[in-house]
Design a binder for these strands. Sequence first.
RNA 1: GUCCCCGUAGCUCAGCUGGAUAGAGCAUCGGAUUCCUAAUCCGAAGGUCACAGGUUCGAAUCCUGUCGGGGAUACCA
Length: 585
Amino acid sequence: MDFREAVIEALTHALGDDASSLDWGRFLSPPKKAEMGDLAFGCFPLAKARRMAPPQIAAEVAAAIEPTGPIGKVEAVGPYVNFFADPLASLNALTGALADGAFDASMRSGTSTRIMVEFSQPNTHKTFHVGHLRNVLLGDALVRVLSARGHDVVPVNYYGDFGIDVAKCLWWLTTQDVGTPPAEGRTAWLGAAYSQANTAITITDEDDEATQAAKHAQFKDIREVLRRMEEGEPDITQLYRETRQWCLDEFADVYRWLDVRFVHDFFESELEAPARAIVDAYLAKGTFVESEGAIICDLEDVGLVPALVRKSDGASLYMTWDLALAADKFDKFGIERSYYVVASEQNLHFQQLFATLEKMGYDRAKDCRHVSYELVMLPDGKMSSRKGTATPFHELRHGVLDAIETKMRAEARTERESWTDDQWHETARKVAIACLKYGMLRAGNTRRVIYKLEDWLNPEGDTGAYLLYSLARISGIFRKTDEAVDLATAIDAGGEFGGQAERDLLGHLGRLPDVIRRVEDTLDPSAIAQFLYDGAKKFSRFYQECPVLKADDDTRRARLALCKAAETVFTKALALLGIEPVEAM
RNA sequence: GUCCCCGUAGCUCAGCUGGAUAGAGCAUCGGAUUCCUAAUCCGAAGGUCACAGGUUCGAAUCCUGUCGGGGAUACCA
């Protein structure tokens, strides 16, 4: 019997009839502070029936319970009855669950669902920058969490690889002296061309009439480039294909470096034909109607402004392609739930999309969810690929890698003396990725992230490096002993095991399944980042206060088992964020 | 105008379905290293939880309103 069950049984016995109608999930929870115990029962709901003040009830209930088995101690504090788990019994329960798979099973949902998660959605011919990183890491973390929950997850990407913005870039390349592209960062190079084209044709208040006319003429040229692309004219098509491939290759390289995978890619360039067909079909059915020369889906009955599905000049828009994409997802992939990881600017777009799909007769529209998150901002405002103010991703990657390797090389450590160059690079890579992923994912989805390179590289405090460091210290302990720890074997004597720091860490480790259950509901993985950081802090305290290898036999065995459990749980939690541990750093 | 998000320590943020003395990191000040990695740990200082009402035995948390910041609001993606 585990601790929680034992507490409920003891309370049921002590409370008699009053216990029958209690909602344990609501009134039985961990206390605010760890030194107050492992589970607390608030006596508030009994106050009316017993016509007594909660603190009085708590005192009576505590006195009526004799601690046995997993329950180590019971005490009343104010209106609460606090239960302390027997440390050794808890330790054995946790290590046992980790060994026999019960822990992993408790992370899984009862039912397995086929879920598609669409994320990243980069545009070719534009700079891939730090802002896009948040989307990739959020989507990837959700894929990992939903998979751990036992779902059949289908991660997909959707490339914006066609349209007027691509034409702007190609127009600039073909009309200006742009030199040759760099060996690395060709996407950023194309993005700069795109940005310069935008600047060139954007009309400002200072422009006189002649300048304005010139800019209009340039815009007409860009439309002409788009027309040539659409008609597949050889010259421009070759340039389009070549530059598009540069971008796709570079995206693939970024995903590989970040260890992010997709099982299917969708391309905007392939959606135009089916998108047109959908609009025609539902126009004929009457689901879509003509309005002011354009075609819309009226959504007034659900309280939304109409969704525009075809412009008055006959062109398609985002909405049109998204309808075709959604139809594809439902019809060809047999998915039950469909998630879209897209910034919060698109909140209305997705409300309209899902409402339109419902009107089109897709029952699954109610199982679509928009995973909305706030943007990554620069200290002085929004990042814009249009204006070219964003830090390209490859710059960030190198900046972080260099800073971390410099930091490591600056301090002597016996662990590193025998490292080969490959080990240096590999460790720096893992630490860099931990910093980036943790830095992005520790903020809640509704929170804006301010990007400041100094903060990302700060070696102290609440960072991904701290998490890896804690884990490296555990590895360090196991490196210095031959004593093997078998989680499946229960420990029968704990010596001095059971101090505050040990009980605190132990209690924390057991909460991971609750955390990931919550993440499936909220689709916000920051709770896992929080869990990891809190856990690392608790471990550091334990590490400081409790010598492991120098302790007496019984104490040492128990503490080693706790270390092994912490290593196992932290590694699982890190993996949910896509972070790999290091043995030493 | 309407809708969405945010407002908690000097700064950046946690705070799970309402419950015990509102918690971390950074920055500031003080302390810890003959001992498993000091990218660490301990302590001090720092709060009218934007404001005003309401619901409740109890509100940072729920409701209403006000103020401030950001975003969206059919022919950009």
